[in-house]
């Protein structure tokens, strides 16, 4: 019985930990399917976390914090678009610049406003998102199996967790079943074909980047106004890069990217679970080694198991119409 509840709590954590990765990976799919590399998921997630926490603190409402985070992230995406789509700069350089800028900016602003470098004040219950208990979760808890699945695994998550998993089929539908998705995929494969079909290549890429900004804002808000009650320095902790890896591992496809995110989330949940646990024959594994697990997995998966990940054909190339 204890084994069962262990499994349940492991799955529960996996769902929670994977949430920002799922948002970020979906954000990445939009940008990269349109032919724009998005290395700046990390920086934007960090920005969103900061803006959501600060906005929520001053305005007293986490939804307003989220709204401000969306505005901030869409602005950053537009900045990326301005540099790399309109002015045809190197997309990776633009992303790296954004990432570095945000690390410094969030730290400095927190110091200026709250007197603590890279730390925002703790949010009270009104200023943050709380766990959502699904209806009948309490009364169903004692029913075997169903109770465990419903009450222990599915219920009691933050709103973002439900949102993240609801968004994946939506992304799939948009990308593969709508005319917008057709144009999105085409512009990342062969922008000339899109241009000659009478569609504005630049507008398409900006639209994709705008959606990218909205989605990544959710990831950041989840970190600072849901699972945590404040922003702290570099709190995105590489999740943006991890999500990018998951997206590549998932071959730019929402369903497989989701699986990859869950896999990364699971190893992270597992490493938290394994800390301090005595394993038979091995004994206690050093914490640092366990914590490295998700990152080691990333490297191994990307290096070995992806096979030939076929990226959108025109990715990373600014569209130049006239010679």
């Amino acid at each position: 019985m204890e084994f069962l509840s262990d499994i349940a709590s492991l799955i529960n954590s996996t769902l929670r930990i994977s949430t920002p990765l799922v948002f970020a990976a979906m954000a990445g799919i939009f940008a990269e399917r349109s032919g724009v590399i998005d290395f700046s998921l990390e920086g934007k997630m960090l920005m969103a976390a900061f803006v959501a926490a600060v906005g929520s603190y001053f305005l007293g409402n986490p939804w307003l914090g989220l709204l401000l985070a969306i505005i901030a992230c869409v602005s950053l995406s537009m900045l990326h678009g301005f540099a790399s789509v309109t002015y045809k700069g190197d997309q990776v350089v633009s992303c790296v610049a954004i990432n570095i800028l945000i690390i410094g900016l969030t730290t400095a602003l927190a110091a200026a406003w709250f007197g603590q470098a890279g730390l925002t004040p703790t949010l009270n219950e009104d200023q943050r998102f709380l766990e959502v208990n699904l209806p009948f979760a309490e009364s169903l808890r004692d029913v075997p199996i169903i109770g465990t699945i419903y009450s222990d695994i599915l219920s009691g998550h933050y709103i973002f967790v439900y949102l993240a998993y609801a968004i994946v089929p939506l992304v799939f539908w948009v990308v593969f079943k709508t005319s917008f998705g057709l144009r999105l995929r085409a512009v990342g494969e062969n922008p000339s074909a899109v241009d000659t079909a009478g569609i504005n290549v630049f507008a398409m890429r900006y639209k994709a980047l705008a959606i990218n900004g909205v989605l990544i804002a959710f990831a950041g808000a989840h970190l600072s106004t849901a699972v945590n009650a404040n922003f702290f320095r570099e709190m995105s902790a590489g999740r943006g890069y991890l999500a990018l890896a998951a997206m590549i591992f998932g071959k730019w496809h929402p369903k497989t990217a989701l699986v990859a995110c869950l896999l990364f989330g699971f190893t992270d949940a597992l490493q938290i679970r394994l800390q301090g646990v005595e394993l038979p024959a091995i004994g206690e594994i050093p914490v640092q080694l366990i914590q490295a697990l998700p990152y080691v997995l990333t490297v191994v998966l990307l290096a070995g198991f992806v096979g030939k990940a076929i990226a959108p054909n025109a990715i990373g190339q600014p569209y130049i119409k006239e010679r």
Binding site: S179, F180, A197, N313
Partner: peptide, 23 residues
């Protein structure tokens, strides 16, 4: 040729002239 190589013939032809938001 202005074609998207991993699209079908149909997808290439309707691109930009889908005539509806959802297929």
């Amino acid at each position: 040729f202005m074609l998207v190589e991993n699209f079908t013939v149909l997808e290439n032809i309707i691109l930009g002239f889908e005539g509806e938001l959802v297929f």
